[in-house]
Design a protein around this nucleic acid. Structure first.
Length: 585
RNA sequence: GGGCACAUAGCUCAGUCUGGACAGAGCGUCGGACUUCUAAUCCGACGGCCGCGGGUUCAAAUCCCGUUGUGCCCGCCA
């Protein structure tokens, strides 16, 4: 309803300005301070003062007088305070908000008939997912969820780098070494923990061996890469076995978040179908191509990039970016838009990709990047190859364990007579533990760096998932005790007139606008901020407005409907963040 | 050396795109509230030259320039 109200305010201001023959380019619509009884405001009067040759407060008064709120559904009182024009909402606005929010899918925007492919995670299948990487699936999943709720037709892709040197080294090491060559047991009974030991062994071997041995090994590794480039079936199978095995384990880990994918797109696919060769041929013909130092390159100065992009090696083989170009042209052929979630270390490569897609005749505006900073340890970066880092599996296990302890600690002083059984405790521990980890990461601006600290990542107090989840559980608790679901006929918004009720309705009304804004800018952390606002508003309401024991039956019915509305807003906002909404805690 | 990010209360962060009403939360500290729909809650107090210096503007945490600190990138790796 807030979206409609916002549109009405824009209309009203535009019409008012036109009637005074004033420019309508900048309406100055903003949100007023919280202690003011208004939902939106305008500071346009500051700019009118000159035109009207009066002080801003007079200009505001003139414009306010030119607006008749009777022309609008949701605009109530239009008042001024100094130079500001303040807009209140109508009872109808509140009535329709609570009615609309009775729908289980409240917050979902109408379908847009526009498809978006969201690529995220795409970690090389070299070993277990560590926390440094985990920001990608958590953020990426939330971006995809946000777009989905905003009405886009979303597909989630994981791009598998199965053609690079890393996988060639891995395959070589896996074939060269035996279990007996390894110096440790797998840290966990799953494929990627088992195989990563070969990868690490191979890398340390290459570092430590003498020159002749290293050279021989490098020849074997180069043979694997050339086999892939030449389309040799046997090589594909050898590499594919390692890739699929390791990736299988990583999928299991990611599924715990959960982060699920519609498709795992392999890089080799674009070598085998000839599209990478096609891209290279077209780039050679472009005006930006140069043949320098025996390799084909692109000069991208015209795009503000002073670094040349090599797209064919001197031996005519392709590079990662060349294949990624073919990959993105494939995306453009199958989807209206593409969004990629990338670590900040890929920024240069991402801008080169954008520029080159442009050169190839694509509209680069169809591709958006969401860039995030890595999660580092206090002592530095996490690395799969070196085996430094906190594994996501371990973090999730620890989070669940701590959540379980919390649940058990609280069992004693529960007022509610819904004795939780073992199964409930385990369910809540999972929902809260994993929710807290996800929320901690998704609620922050992705561009800000995070230094991983156990006690911070596992802090259930702070502004965290459990706070919001608890609100959802409270809603469910109340609705459980009530007889039957509230219906639209139960709602009398004039019975919901306390400041706490009005504030809660106001928060609920904003939810679809929050989804819209978060989707437009691919910023799911805004939804996290919103969950706290709506939770705050609910808790204030909960404190001062008894529902089941309300003074009158009419108030009780209306408040029940309001609780249902809040529950839907909270549940769907949490769903966007990938955080589960518990029915009880 | 060049490029890109980040810097807001003791700590962790919103707000920055699109400049506007005294800069908001949580944690921590201190003081209160459970015979009541779940206290993983709520109420109150304390706490800020929004890194620093200039500039633009009626108005700057927000825009521009400079500067300091931190991170990332600058490969015929991915």
């Amino acid at each position: 309803m807030f979206r409609a109200f916002r549109a009405e305010v824009a209309d009203a201001l535009t019409a008012g300005l036109e009637s005074l023959e004033l420019p309508t380019g900048d309406l100055g619509i903003e949100e007023p301070p919280e202690d003011l009884d208004a939902t939106l405001a305008s500071s346009v009067a500051f700019r009118l003062a000159g035109e009207l040759e009066t002080a801003p407060p007079q200009a505001a008064a003139e414009l306010a007088a030119a607006i008749d709120s009777a022309d609008y559904e949701y605009i109530g009182a239009v008042t001024t305070k100094g130079p500001y024009i303040n807009f209140r909402t109508t009872d109808r606005y509140r009535q329709e908000t609570v009615e609309a929010a009775q729908a289980d899918d409240y917050g979902h925007l109408p379908e847009r008939d526009e498809s978006v492919v969201v690529e995220h995670t795409s970690a090389n299948p070299t070993g277990p997912v560590h926390v440094g990487r985990a920001r990608n699936p958590i953020l990426g999943d939330a971006v995809a969820n946000t777009l989905d709720m905003a009405g886009y037709d979303v597909e989630r892709h994981y791009y598998v780098n199965d053609a690079g040197r890393q996988m060639a080294v891995f395959t070589w090491a896996y074939e060269k070494f035996d279990e007996s060559d390894l110096d440790s047991e797998p840290a966990r009974d799953r494929a990627e923990y088992d195989l990563v030991r070969y990868y690490r062994k191979g890398n340390s071997f290459l570092e430590d061996a003498d020159e002749a041995t290293t050279e021989a090994a490098e020849d074997e590794i180069a043979a694997i890469m050339q086999g892939l480039e030449a389309g040799d079936e046997d090589t594909y199978e050898r590499v594919g076995e390692v890739v699929d095995t390791v990736l299988g384990g990583m999928k299991d880990c990611l599924a715990r978040l959960p982060a699920e994918f519609d498709e795992f797109v392999k890089e080799t696919r674009f070598m085998r179908d000839g599209s990478t060769d096609d891209v290279a041929a077209r780039l050679k013909d472009s005006e930006y191509a140069v043949y320098d130092e025996e390799a084909w390159q692109l000069e991208l100065d015209a795009f503000g990039i002073d670094k040349n992009l090599v797209f064919l090696r001197s031996d005519e083989t392709s590079l990662y970016t060349t294949r990624d170009l073919a990959h993105h042209e494939w995306k453009f052929a199958n989807f209206d838009r593409a969004v990629t979630v990338l670590g900040e270390d890929h920024k240069l490569q991402a801008s080169q990709l954008q520029a080159t897609l442009d050169i190839l005749g694509n509209d680069p505006d169809r591709l958006d990047d969401v860039i995030y900073s890595y999660v580092n340890l206090p002592e530095g970066k996490m690395s799969t190859r070196r085996g430094t880092g906190v594994m996501l599996d371990d973090l999730l296990d620890e989070a669940i364990d701590r959540a379980r302890e919390e649940v058990e600690d609280r069992l004693g002083d529960r007022i509610r007579d819904d004795d939780l059984d073992e199964e409930d405790i385990e369910r809540i521990a999972h929902q809260v533990g994993i929710g807290a980890v996800r929320y901690d990461i998704v609620s922050k601006q992705p561009t800000k760096g995070i230094t991983f600290k156990w006690d911070e990542a596992l802090d259930f107090e702070a502004q965290s998932a459990p706070y919001v989840q608890y609100v959802h559980a409270r809603c469910c608790g109340i609705l459980d005790e009530a007889d039957g679901e509230p219906t639209a006929e139960d709602i009398d918004s004039t019975a919901l007139s306390t400041p706490e009720e009005a504030a809660l309705i106001d928060a609920i009304a904003r939810f679809p606008a929050v989804i819209e804004d978060a989707a437009d800018e691919c910023k799911p952390h805004r939804v996290a901020t919103y969950t706290r606002e709506v939770a705050d508003a609910f808790n204030a309401f909960y404190r001062s407005c008894p529902v089941l024991s309300a003074d009158t039956a009419a108030t009780r019915r209306s408040r029940l409907a309001l609780v249902a509305a809040a529950q839907h807003a909270v549940a769907n906002a949490l769903a966007v963040l990938g955080v589960e909404a518990p029915d009880s805690m």
